[in-house]
Design a protein around this nucleic acid. Sequence first.
DNA 1: TGACAAATACTCGACTCAGAGTATTCTGTC
DNA 2: GACAGAATACTCTGAGTCGAGTATTTGTCA
Lengths: 227, 227
Amino acid sequence: MAPRTRANPLALAVLTSLYEKPMHPYEISQTLRERGVDRSVRLNFGSLYSVVEGLEKRGLIQGGEKIREGRRPERTVYEITEAGTTEMTDWLVDLVSIPVKEYLQFEAGLALLGAIHPDEVVGLLRQRVAAMESTIEQDTAEVTDIIRRGLPRLFLLEAEYQTALQQAEVQWVRQLIADIESGRLGDLEQWRAWHETGQHIWDIEFDTTGLPGFDKTENNKGQEDNR
Amino acid sequence: MAPRTRANPLALAVLTSLYEKPMHPYEISQTLRERGVDRSVRLNFGSLYSVVEGLEKRGLIQGGEKIREGRRPERTVYEITEAGTTEMTDWLVDLVSIPVKEYLQFEAGLALLGAIHPDEVVGLLRQRVAAMESTIEQDTAEVTDIIRRGLPRLFLLEAEYQTALQQAEVQWVRQLIADIESGRLGDLEQWRAWHETGQHIWDIEFDTTGLPGFDKTENNKGQEDNR
DNA sequence: TGACAAATACTCGACTCAGAGTATTCTGTC
DNA sequence: GACAGAATACTCTGAGTCGAGTATTTGTCA
């Protein structure tokens, strides 16, 4: 019902909104949408209201007057506290300076790729590349348009960043496709055999037990993975 | 208590495990760890048991005998059903072929960057770059080591992918640092001014209302964002 | 002026996840 | 041979998330 930890970045977005001026939750949501923050931070009502509640419980924001206009539902206007301002800055500093491990859907797909028949894979990867390329094109078109209209680049950094990552992904996948087709990935035989005979490639090939860093450490440099 | 949707990739990992042979949940978790799948898929006990329960409820797996050895807690061995096999393949196909929007922590940080004083930002970005570079180095060292020991590259694709993305991020951040320092980002004045005077850069500069695609569409090409 | 869509402002309940806690058994070592 | 600690195999609780649902008001177009 409420974030005691720094799990949900929506809470941070709320803090930054209230840092500008006191607002009621719905107004916060509108502000975030107008500014396109919802492209980078998951925003939905259920979470918003519980996040706000949680922030209040932690003393980072304060609910003031409950105003009722006409017979609309009453609105509680919140303002940020000093503790809230501190927490906002600290959190933001950490977000920017400390990389955290993210669990991406595609990563999961890659890790489990063996369960698909190898002859299907290339086609699927091609589809992905095609989809991503059209997305990238649209996004960059939109961004240049918005910049032309005068929005400072500062507010489009996340879009730039996203595009950069997507381009890198496309390149990597293209390379992977090439490697599979040229046989440079190797092991296609065993992969196929596994699907046809039921022999487990894992058992045949290799055993990772005792490989330091292969099943424990890895990639937690930085902080404990948020959430 | 159970995933009716395709929210949690752990459920897919469970399906692929059971596709090889029937197992009880704890054994699944060990298998996944051995193979390093837990680097790409969030794995913890609470989730595992509810995910398994959910898969059974959906008829994708079947719990069989409850075995009790000695006086250890009893174990239920599950096997995958035909429906489960189908779902596994479909899901995996989608994961690989359809890109989905991911909400990254750093993206959130970038979107809210304005709330930090500009003079601090470069230092923070430098820290990030340093941390990432050491992670990348360690990871690639580990991967080459593992490959030398004979693990087929097929099972390290996610690691390669991760590294590729991290390198792209590092490059992008380096560029950003350069742009800020050379003044090419622009707007540093207003940014600073905002922090010192309390004037809202948003209100001064620009208004995004009515910009098509800036607050609604964007990046949902593909499917409804999982979860 | 009536009617229908969009905006306003939340509420609610069902689901989902995390991870500490529990109870037992094996393993190594001095 | 006895004791610590790792491994086995879960269970339980409560926090957190999602998004459809609700109820009013404002805009709009014929």
